[in-house]
Write a protein that binds this DNA or RNA. Sequence first.
DNA 1: GTTGCGATAGTCT
DNA 2: GACTATCGCAACG
Length: 190
Amino acid sequence: MSVRTGRILPRRFYQRAAAIVARELIGKVLVKGGTSGIIVETEAYLGENDLASHSAVGLTKRTQVIFGPAGHAYVYFSYGMHYCMNIVAHSPGVGDAILLRALEPVSGIETMRERRGASIRDRDLASGPGKLAQAMGITLEDYGHDMTRGNFVVREPGVETAFEIDVTPRIGISKSKDLPLRFVLRRAAI
DNA sequence: GTTGCGATAGTCT
DNA sequence: GACTATCGCAACG
């Protein structure tokens, strides 16, 4: 099954504040190899002044990429068992990033099921940060990858459709938890 | 449908 | 040595 998609999002798309990029990533298509999915949930992390952000601890070996140029992948290992996928935003030195929290699978669904488990339902294949990374086969090997090149990119959707975006506080953090920086594609009423 | 909890390892203090 | 940008399962209703 082939799925029509539009152009790769250019570097300048990412060279803006994380909150704006996070909102505009909703409805775009994450593509890696033969797998792809519509981005339906993101969170913005705002750099050094945002205590919930990894960049708040400053420049370390782990956080180097967040302080680099926009449009690169920041992947980290969490809770001893999950990878989480972020894309760096804004300008070098700022430390902005967007966490990709959930996808709606589009293609390569059988590949995703091989990675996630044979009995997993489509809607649960990538319905969380750790699940998204597992379904797409994202690991530390993707740390620093340029998301405007290669076979791991974000594209415009093939067909533009109207949708609404809900904005809520971020999930699973203990600091700065009240900021409205989580963006969710609102499913059309069935 | 919901809530509660244990697993597990890298990173920083 | 504490903490974590999580998940899946088990128990319940």
